[in-house]
Nucleic acid binder design. Structure first.
Lengths: 195, 195
DNA sequence: CGTACTGATGTCAGTTACTGACATGACAGT
DNA sequence: ACTGTCATGTCAGTAACTGACATCAGTACG
């Protein structure tokens, strides 16, 4: 690598946008080959052409780099909630239907790779749980804002998240071929049968 | 109780139970006065009269000191599950009833103090979520072992944990005076109404 | 045209959670 | 007493984060 290349990379790294995106890609790649614990933030930063300090300006901590996209997920879920509904369960199911759009066949491979990394690290599972829990909190708030009593809202929200978790887990399981909506329908059917 | 039993207990207290217990008490006290982030492991260890290294021999990480008791909780919950049941929801509700014994009035104050610390720190919330999730996993396994299909078992387990979480949150809320079983009954009633 | 301002980045020093390796000292059974 | 075990101490090291300050491309504005 020549001096000018280094200079170029330095410039690109510094002024070309998308540092967060590059960091995310670099991180996923390194995690797959070296494992999460076997990869330092300094390595990720170097692979993305930035400094360790810059990594922490984009992500609050090392784990967060794997949850970069999740913010749009919560928005999609919440936007799919009907404007008003007396039946909290029905509302939550509508939200689930909207969120399903984010889990198309073209993303299953990436989701599997990501999930394999998370499954191998308790700390990452904690973070995933927290994200889901925050979604449940948002859901609860939305439902409560529609006049549903807090306990019913919380239960409906937790149930909805449980359905999503069960669906997603099945969807990314090795060998599974059914589409996300298909699995979701089965989970919902079993939930109805349960009650 | 024989003399040897007393000796044994003394030994156990000095060498095993003692340090962990002292560390736990010291940690809770310091967290209350200085906050979780404002307290270093070295401080906790010093307050308990041991070394920082010893802290990490008893607890895998700093957070874990606040979840010392939780191991018995899962055992109590699981033991209260009926030996065999075709109805997973009924089985889970039985488990909930058994676990309620751990949340008597005499522990409400301590639980409130602990929960206040956890509520103020996202990292601690993550750990709590993980513990609950592990409980759901154990529950699922137990139910599946009773011949219930995996998806129904997972849903019933998640639902049971959601009921517990909702009940516990209400129970430790400031100003709440109803007993744990009373609140649990109301949550279960609302759950039935929801379905 | 230049000058000041902004925003993302670099640099650097420091704290603290956590880990591995080895030493010590009390107790248990022999 | 002798020896093994187990909780603890000691010490050195790694890596995740944080705060303070410097730098420099691009932009707005005179």
């Amino acid at each position: 690598m020549s001096a000018s290349d280094i200079t170029m990379m330095g410039i690109m790294a510094r002024w070309q946008g998308g540092a967060a995106e590059r960091l995310k890609e670099a991180a996923l790649g390194l995690f797959q080959t070296q494992g999460y614990d076997g990869t330092t933030v300094a390595e990720i930063a170097a692979a993305a052409g930035v400094t360790e300090r810059t990594f922490f300006r984009h992500f609050t901590d090392k784990r967060e780099v794997l949850f970069f996209d999740q913010q749009s997920f919560e928005g999609t879920f919440l936007n799919a909630l009907p404007a008003s509904s007396a039946d909290p369960i029905a509302a939550v199911i509508a939200g689930l239907g909207g969120a399903a759009a984010l889990f198309g066949e073209e993303r299953r491979g990436w989701s599997r790779a990501r999930q394999a990394i998370i499954a191998a690290n308790p700390g990452l599972q904690e973070r995933e749980l927290l994200k889901l829990s925050l979604l449940a909190v948002s859901l609860t708030r939305e439902l409560a804002g529609r006049g549903i009593d807090p306990i019913s809202a919380a239960l409906a929200a937790e149930t909805g998240v449980a359905v999503f978790r069960t669906t997603f887990t099945t969807w990314v399981a090795e060998g599974e071929t059914r589409s996300f909506p298909e699995i979701q329908d089965e989970v919902l059917e079993r939930l109805r049968a349960l009650l």
